[in-house]
Amino acid sequence: MATIDTQRADLPAPGSEGHPLFWKNRGHGHHFRSSAEEFDACKLGMWLFLATEILLFAGIFCAYTVFRTLYPEAWAEISHSLDWRFGLLNTVVLLLSSWTVASAVRAAQRGRNGALILNLVVTLICAALFIFIKLKFEYMVKLDLGKAPGTWFSYPYAENPQVPLCWSIYYMGTGLHALHVIIGACLLSWVLFRAIRYKAYGPTHYTMVETSALYWHLVDLIWIFLFPLLYLIH
């Protein structure tokens, strides 16, 4: 699978039907027997990768369970100072983005490039909104009060000696999740770029859209677990 030099002068304009990256012109890797086989392989690969991501977060969830059991009072203190309304808002934002990214896959399968682009843009706006809410209304507010992880914890009214530890788990969990939101957004931006410039995705070639969307659903799924565990259980 040689890299195609897209900058060569004698190529047709990007996005035109003749360009090698146009979806109808895409072949499959020489070591696969068919495009369908390649698509299946990529999807299996992504599912396995998602399994590793879930296990990565399993560590955080495990630590959460252990320390929630050990120090319920400290956790109650933290849950009370987390505003469930922002958490819920972010949940809604992510659920919406999951829906739009699913629509994007559908659009690619049907060859509707415009709908694909629109859905991806909405998804990316949701991602930005999520990060904005997280930073502006949650992290910044708490950091200003001194509810910071580890050495930076300076909140003077903490009633429980384990509160800094619990804040650390909060920041590790949500921070790692935010990092995954950003990685997912980068993947989707790449898909968006190729969709706009090359019309790279269509009914016979949408592997990248599908796998990026799978990744995005995972990001959503993890938040669905983080939100009630951190915000709702008192």
């Binding site: 320390f67 050990l70 580890g150 000696p161 920041y171």
Partner: peptide, 12 residues
């Protein structure tokens, strides 16, 4: 950053 998850002095 001494987040404390494995540090007994912070309850870890």
């Amino acid at each position: 950053f001494h987040i404390g998850i494995f540090d007994p002095s912070l309850g870890g």
